[in-house]
Protein backbone atom coordinates (compact mmCIF):
# COMPACT_ATOMS: atom_id res chain seq x y z
CA UNK A 1 0.00 0.00 0.00
CA UNK A 2 2.86 2.37 0.91
CA UNK A 3 6.39 1.78 -0.28
CA UNK A 4 9.52 3.72 0.55
CA UNK A 5 12.17 3.19 -2.08
CA UNK A 6 15.65 4.40 -1.06
CA UNK A 7 14.24 7.65 0.25
CA UNK A 8 16.57 10.39 1.44
CA UNK A 9 15.33 13.69 2.78
CA UNK A 10 17.70 16.59 3.23
CA UNK A 11 16.27 19.87 4.45
CA UNK A 12 17.09 23.25 2.96
CA UNK A 13 19.57 23.91 5.79
CA UNK A 14 21.31 20.68 4.66
CA UNK A 15 20.40 18.66 7.75
CA UNK A 16 19.81 15.08 6.75
CA UNK A 17 16.48 13.97 8.19
CA UNK A 18 16.53 10.43 6.81
CA UNK A 19 19.01 8.61 4.62
CA UNK A 20 18.25 5.84 2.18
CA UNK A 21 15.14 4.44 3.82
CA UNK A 22 13.31 1.50 2.25
CA UNK A 23 10.36 -0.39 3.64
CA UNK A 24 6.87 -1.38 2.70
CA UNK A 25 3.58 -1.14 4.53
CA UNK A 26 1.20 -3.93 3.61
CA UNK A 27 -2.49 -3.15 3.13
CA UNK A 28 -4.59 -3.43 6.27
CA UNK A 29 -1.64 -3.59 8.64
CA UNK A 30 -0.32 -1.22 11.24
CA UNK A 31 3.31 -0.25 10.92
CA UNK A 32 4.85 1.70 13.75
CA UNK A 33 7.78 4.05 13.24
CA UNK A 34 9.67 4.30 16.49
CA UNK A 35 12.90 5.91 17.62
CA UNK A 36 14.35 8.65 19.78
CA UNK A 37 13.31 12.24 19.08
CA UNK A 38 14.94 13.77 16.05
CA UNK A 39 15.45 10.39 14.38
CA UNK A 40 13.37 11.27 11.33
CA UNK A 41 10.29 9.20 12.06
CA UNK A 42 7.87 12.13 11.73
CA UNK A 43 9.60 13.29 8.55
CA UNK A 44 9.21 9.78 7.17
CA UNK A 45 5.50 9.91 7.86
CA UNK A 46 5.07 13.36 6.34
CA UNK A 47 6.62 12.06 3.14
CA UNK A 48 3.54 9.91 2.67
CA UNK A 49 1.04 12.76 2.45
CA UNK A 50 3.61 15.08 0.92
CA UNK A 51 3.85 17.51 3.79
CA UNK A 52 7.48 16.82 2.89
CA UNK A 53 8.86 15.75 -0.48
CA UNK A 54 11.80 13.36 -0.85
CA UNK A 55 15.18 14.71 -1.88
CA UNK A 56 16.13 11.36 -3.41
CA UNK A 57 14.21 8.15 -3.97
CA UNK A 58 10.46 7.80 -4.16
CA UNK A 59 7.44 7.07 -2.04
CA UNK A 60 4.75 4.94 -3.64
CA UNK A 61 1.10 5.11 -2.66
CA UNK A 62 -0.90 2.17 -3.94
CA UNK A 63 1.73 1.60 -6.63
CA UNK A 64 1.90 5.21 -7.81
CA UNK A 65 4.77 7.58 -7.08
CA UNK A 66 3.31 10.22 -4.76
CA UNK A 67 5.02 12.92 -6.81
CA UNK A 68 2.63 12.05 -9.62
CA UNK A 69 -0.48 12.42 -7.47
CA UNK A 70 -1.93 15.86 -6.79
CA UNK A 71 -1.12 16.99 -3.26
CA UNK A 72 -4.69 17.91 -2.42
CA UNK A 73 -6.17 14.72 -3.80
CA UNK A 74 -3.56 12.57 -2.04
CA UNK A 75 -4.09 14.26 1.31
CA UNK A 76 -7.85 13.97 1.13
CA UNK A 77 -7.46 10.22 0.65
CA UNK A 78 -5.17 9.87 3.64
CA UNK A 79 -6.38 10.35 7.20
CA UNK A 80 -4.05 12.38 9.38
CA UNK A 81 -3.88 12.61 13.16
CA UNK A 82 -1.22 14.73 14.82
CA UNK A 83 -0.04 14.78 18.40
CA UNK A 84 -1.43 18.20 19.24
CA UNK A 85 -4.63 17.04 17.53
CA UNK A 86 -5.02 20.38 15.77
CA UNK A 87 -8.78 20.49 16.17
CA UNK A 88 -10.41 23.56 14.68
CA UNK A 89 -11.52 25.39 17.82
CA UNK A 90 -13.94 27.66 16.00
CA UNK A 91 -15.90 24.69 14.70
CA UNK A 92 -18.11 22.24 16.55
CA UNK A 93 -17.08 18.63 17.02
CA UNK A 94 -19.46 17.67 14.22
CA UNK A 95 -18.04 20.29 11.84
CA UNK A 96 -14.52 19.16 12.66
CA UNK A 97 -15.32 15.56 11.81
CA UNK A 98 -17.12 16.66 8.64
CA UNK A 99 -14.10 18.58 7.29
CA UNK A 100 -12.75 16.15 4.70
CA UNK A 101 -16.13 14.81 3.52
CA UNK A 102 -17.11 18.46 2.94
CA UNK A 103 -13.90 19.13 1.02
CA UNK A 104 -14.68 16.07 -1.05
CA UNK A 105 -18.13 17.40 -1.78
CA UNK A 106 -20.30 14.74 -0.16
CA UNK A 107 -23.93 15.73 0.23
CA UNK A 108 -25.18 16.94 3.60
CA UNK A 109 -27.27 13.93 4.55
CA UNK A 110 -24.42 11.57 3.83
CA UNK A 111 -22.04 13.74 5.87
CA UNK A 112 -24.40 13.88 8.87
CA UNK A 113 -24.79 10.09 8.88
CA UNK A 114 -21.05 9.61 8.63
CA UNK A 115 -20.35 12.07 11.47
CA UNK A 116 -22.80 10.33 13.80
CA UNK A 117 -21.44 6.91 12.91
CA UNK A 118 -17.87 7.96 13.61
CA UNK A 119 -18.69 9.67 16.89
CA UNK A 120 -20.41 6.47 17.96
CA UNK A 121 -17.40 4.46 16.88
CA UNK A 122 -15.22 6.68 19.04
CA UNK A 123 -17.62 6.25 21.98
CA UNK A 124 -18.83 9.85 21.92
CA UNK A 125 -22.60 10.00 21.85
CA UNK A 126 -23.52 12.15 18.80
CA UNK A 127 -26.49 13.81 20.55
CA UNK A 128 -24.25 15.01 23.34
CA UNK A 129 -21.05 15.89 21.53
CA UNK A 130 -21.92 16.78 17.94
CA UNK A 131 -22.63 20.44 18.72
CA UNK A 132 -20.03 20.98 21.42
CA UNK A 133 -16.87 22.96 20.81
CA UNK A 134 -13.44 21.34 21.23
CA UNK A 135 -12.58 23.49 24.25
CA UNK A 136 -15.45 21.91 26.16
CA UNK A 137 -13.88 18.45 25.87
CA UNK A 138 -11.23 16.64 27.88
CA UNK A 139 -7.87 15.72 26.34
CA UNK A 140 -8.96 12.15 25.72
CA UNK A 141 -12.21 13.24 24.11
CA UNK A 142 -10.43 15.71 21.85
CA UNK A 143 -8.09 12.96 20.73
CA UNK A 144 -11.10 10.78 19.93
CA UNK A 145 -12.52 13.60 17.82
CA UNK A 146 -9.12 13.90 16.12
CA UNK A 147 -9.21 10.22 15.19
CA UNK A 148 -12.86 10.43 14.10
CA UNK A 149 -12.00 13.39 11.90
CA UNK A 150 -9.12 11.52 10.31
CA UNK A 151 -11.37 8.53 9.59
CA UNK A 152 -14.24 10.63 8.29
CA UNK A 153 -13.84 10.15 4.56
CA UNK A 154 -13.05 6.45 4.98
CA UNK A 155 -9.37 6.81 4.07
CA UNK A 156 -7.36 3.89 2.71
CA UNK A 157 -4.39 5.00 4.77
CA UNK A 158 -4.27 6.59 8.20
CA UNK A 159 -1.21 8.48 9.42
CA UNK A 160 -0.96 8.93 13.17
CA UNK A 161 1.83 11.05 14.64
CA UNK A 162 2.09 10.29 18.36
CA UNK A 163 -1.69 10.40 18.60
CA UNK A 164 -1.81 9.41 22.24
CA UNK A 165 1.39 11.17 23.31
CA UNK A 166 -0.17 14.08 25.17
CA UNK A 167 -2.49 11.96 27.28
CA UNK A 168 -2.11 10.64 30.81
CA UNK A 169 -1.03 6.97 31.01
CA UNK A 170 -4.47 5.61 31.90
CA UNK A 171 -6.34 7.47 29.17
CA UNK A 172 -3.59 6.51 26.74
CA UNK A 173 -3.85 2.80 27.53
CA UNK A 174 -7.65 2.96 27.22
CA UNK A 175 -7.47 4.71 23.86
CA UNK A 176 -4.83 2.27 22.60
CA UNK A 177 -7.05 -0.68 23.50
CA UNK A 178 -10.07 0.93 21.93
CA UNK A 179 -8.13 1.84 18.85
CA UNK A 180 -6.92 -1.74 18.42
CA UNK A 181 -10.54 -2.85 18.45
CA UNK A 182 -11.51 -0.17 15.96
CA UNK A 183 -8.61 -1.12 13.71
CA UNK A 184 -9.75 -4.75 13.76
CA UNK A 185 -13.10 -3.48 12.53
CA UNK A 186 -12.14 -0.94 9.88
CA UNK A 187 -8.96 -2.64 8.67
CA UNK A 188 -7.26 0.51 7.42
CA UNK A 189 -3.57 0.64 6.55
CA UNK A 190 -1.95 2.57 9.36
CA UNK A 191 1.38 4.29 9.73
CA UNK A 192 1.89 5.17 13.36
CA UNK A 193 4.70 7.28 14.85
CA UNK A 194 5.72 7.04 18.49
CA UNK A 195 8.81 7.38 20.65
CA UNK A 196 7.61 4.70 23.05
CA UNK A 197 8.75 1.16 22.31
CA UNK A 198 5.96 -0.18 24.51
CA UNK A 199 3.36 1.59 22.41
CA UNK A 200 5.08 0.34 19.26
CA UNK A 201 5.04 -3.27 20.50
CA UNK A 202 1.41 -2.96 21.47
CA UNK A 203 0.05 -1.26 18.36
CA UNK A 204 2.22 -2.57 15.53
CA UNK A 205 2.00 -5.52 13.21
CA UNK A 206 5.39 -4.40 11.99
CA UNK A 207 7.84 -2.05 13.62
CA UNK A 208 10.40 0.22 11.98
CA UNK A 209 13.14 1.25 14.40
CA UNK A 210 15.03 4.43 13.57
CA UNK A 211 18.34 5.64 14.82
CA UNK A 212 19.27 9.20 13.81
CA UNK A 213 18.14 9.34 10.19
CA UNK A 214 18.58 5.65 9.57
CA UNK A 215 16.39 2.60 9.53
CA UNK A 216 17.93 0.10 11.92
CA UNK A 217 15.47 -2.77 11.98
CA UNK A 218 12.17 -3.47 10.26
CA UNK A 219 10.47 -6.50 11.69
CA UNK A 220 7.54 -7.93 13.62
CA UNK A 221 7.34 -6.99 17.31
CA UNK A 222 8.19 -10.54 18.33
CA UNK A 223 11.26 -10.76 16.10
CA UNK A 224 12.49 -7.43 17.36
CA UNK A 225 12.30 -8.74 20.91
CA UNK A 226 13.78 -12.12 20.06
CA UNK A 227 16.40 -11.13 17.51
CA UNK A 228 17.40 -7.50 17.92
CA UNK A 229 19.87 -6.93 15.10
CA UNK A 230 22.08 -4.43 16.86
CA UNK A 231 23.18 -3.04 20.19
CA UNK A 232 21.05 0.03 19.47
CA UNK A 233 17.86 -1.99 19.12
CA UNK A 234 18.69 -4.02 22.21
CA UNK A 235 19.20 -0.84 24.22
CA UNK A 236 16.13 0.77 22.74
CA UNK A 237 13.90 -2.17 23.56
CA UNK A 238 15.24 -1.94 27.08
CA UNK A 239 14.77 -4.21 30.05
CA UNK A 240 12.11 -6.83 30.72
CA UNK A 241 12.32 -8.26 27.24
CA UNK A 242 10.64 -11.43 28.43
CA UNK A 243 7.75 -9.61 30.01
CA UNK A 244 7.36 -7.49 26.89
CA UNK A 245 7.30 -10.66 24.83
CA UNK A 246 4.70 -12.20 27.09
CA UNK A 247 2.54 -9.13 26.65
CA UNK A 248 2.60 -9.67 22.89
CA UNK A 249 1.23 -13.21 23.02
CA UNK A 250 -2.41 -13.78 23.77
CA UNK A 251 -3.78 -16.60 25.89
CA UNK A 252 -5.72 -18.14 23.02
CA UNK A 253 -2.51 -18.61 21.03
CA UNK A 254 -1.05 -21.19 23.40
CA UNK A 255 -4.04 -22.56 25.34
CA UNK A 256 -5.20 -26.11 24.85
CA UNK A 257 -8.82 -26.05 23.72
CA UNK A 258 -11.12 -27.84 26.17
CA UNK A 259 -12.45 -30.46 23.76
CA UNK A 260 -9.04 -32.12 23.37
CA UNK A 261 -8.10 -32.01 27.03
CA UNK A 262 -7.59 -35.37 28.68
CA UNK A 263 -9.83 -36.26 31.59
CA UNK A 264 -7.24 -35.86 34.30
CA UNK A 265 -6.20 -32.37 33.34
CA UNK A 266 -9.79 -31.38 32.97
CA UNK A 267 -10.46 -32.48 36.52
CA UNK A 268 -7.38 -30.69 37.79
CA UNK A 269 -8.39 -27.41 36.35
CA UNK A 270 -11.94 -27.75 37.60
CA UNK A 271 -10.87 -28.30 41.17
CA UNK A 272 -8.50 -25.45 40.81
CA UNK A 273 -10.99 -22.91 39.69
CA UNK A 274 -14.33 -23.75 41.15
CA UNK A 275 -15.24 -22.81 44.62
CA UNK A 276 -18.86 -23.52 45.41
CA UNK A 277 -19.71 -23.31 41.72
CA UNK A 278 -18.13 -19.87 41.40
CA UNK A 279 -15.17 -19.37 39.11
CA UNK A 280 -12.43 -17.72 41.13
CA UNK A 281 -9.49 -17.24 38.79
CA UNK A 282 -9.80 -17.49 35.06
CA UNK A 283 -8.47 -15.92 31.90
CA UNK A 284 -10.05 -14.46 28.79
CA UNK A 285 -8.83 -15.58 25.34
CA UNK A 286 -7.73 -12.01 24.57
CA UNK A 287 -5.64 -11.62 27.73
CA UNK A 288 -1.90 -11.36 27.23
CA UNK A 289 0.40 -13.96 28.72
CA UNK A 290 1.78 -11.16 30.87
CA UNK A 291 -1.54 -10.71 32.63
CA UNK A 292 -1.94 -14.53 32.68
CA UNK A 293 1.38 -14.76 34.49
CA UNK A 294 0.21 -12.19 36.96
CA UNK A 295 -2.95 -14.22 37.58
CA UNK A 296 -0.85 -17.37 38.10
CA UNK A 297 1.32 -15.60 40.66
CA UNK A 298 -1.75 -14.21 42.38
CA UNK A 299 -3.69 -17.49 42.51
CA UNK A 300 -0.75 -19.85 43.01
CA UNK A 301 -2.45 -22.46 40.85
CA UNK A 302 -0.81 -24.74 38.27
CA UNK A 303 -3.34 -24.28 35.50
CA UNK A 304 -6.14 -21.88 34.75
CA UNK A 305 -9.23 -22.13 32.53
CA UNK A 306 -9.80 -19.76 29.66
CA UNK A 307 -13.37 -18.51 29.82
CA UNK A 308 -15.37 -16.87 27.07
CA UNK A 309 -19.05 -16.00 27.46
CA UNK A 310 -19.12 -17.88 30.77
CA UNK A 311 -17.96 -21.05 29.06
CA UNK A 312 -14.59 -22.67 29.54
CA UNK A 313 -13.01 -22.96 26.12
CA UNK A 314 -9.46 -23.94 27.05
CA UNK A 315 -6.79 -24.40 29.64
CA UNK A 316 -3.37 -22.94 30.17
CA UNK A 317 -0.55 -24.27 32.36
CA UNK A 318 1.84 -22.11 34.29
CA UNK A 319 4.74 -24.22 33.05
CA UNK A 320 3.92 -23.37 29.46
CA UNK A 321 4.41 -19.71 30.20
CA UNK A 322 7.63 -20.48 32.02
CA UNK A 323 8.84 -22.33 28.97
CA UNK A 324 8.35 -19.29 26.81
CA UNK A 325 9.96 -17.21 29.53
CA UNK A 326 13.05 -19.44 29.59
CA UNK A 327 13.09 -19.85 25.85
CA UNK A 328 13.39 -16.06 25.46
Amino acid sequence: MIKFDNVTKIYADSTVAIRDISFEVAEGTTTVLVGPSGCGKTTTMKLVNRLEDPTEGAVYYDGTNTQEIGVTELRRDIGYVIQEIGLFNHMTVGENVATVPKLKGWDDGQIDDRVDKLLELMALSPEEYRDQYPRELSGGQRQRVGVARALAADPDVLLMDEPFGALDPITRADLQDEFLEIQAEINTTILFVTHSIDEALKMGDKIVIFDVGELVQYDTPRNILENPNSEFVRDFVGEDITLKKLSLINVDEIMRPTNVIEDTTDQDSKTAVTNGGEVMHHLAPGDSLKSALSTFVESDIQSLPVVEDEETIGVIDRDEIYEIYNGG
Binding site: N49, L51, V71, T72, E73, L74, R75, R76, D77, Y80, I82, Q83, E84, I85, G86, L87, F88, N89, T99, V100, L103, R149, A150, L159
Partner: peptide
Protein backbone atom coordinates in the same frame (compact mmCIF):
# COMPACT_ATOMS: atom_id res chain seq x y z
CA UNK B 1 -1.79 27.54 16.16
CA UNK B 2 0.74 26.02 13.73
CA UNK B 3 -0.55 22.54 14.48
CA UNK B 4 -4.05 23.57 13.51
CA UNK B 5 -2.76 24.84 10.19
CA UNK B 6 -0.68 21.72 9.64
CA UNK B 7 -3.69 19.55 10.43
CA UNK B 8 -5.73 21.52 7.90
CA UNK B 9 -3.06 21.22 5.22
CA UNK B 10 -2.55 17.55 6.01
CA UNK B 11 -6.26 16.99 5.48
CA UNK B 12 -5.97 18.34 1.97
CA UNK B 13 -7.07 21.96 2.26
CA UNK B 14 -5.53 24.30 -0.29
CA UNK B 15 -3.73 27.43 0.95
CA UNK B 16 -6.82 29.43 0.09
CA UNK B 17 -9.12 27.03 1.97
Amino acid sequence: DENTIEAAEGMGMTKWE
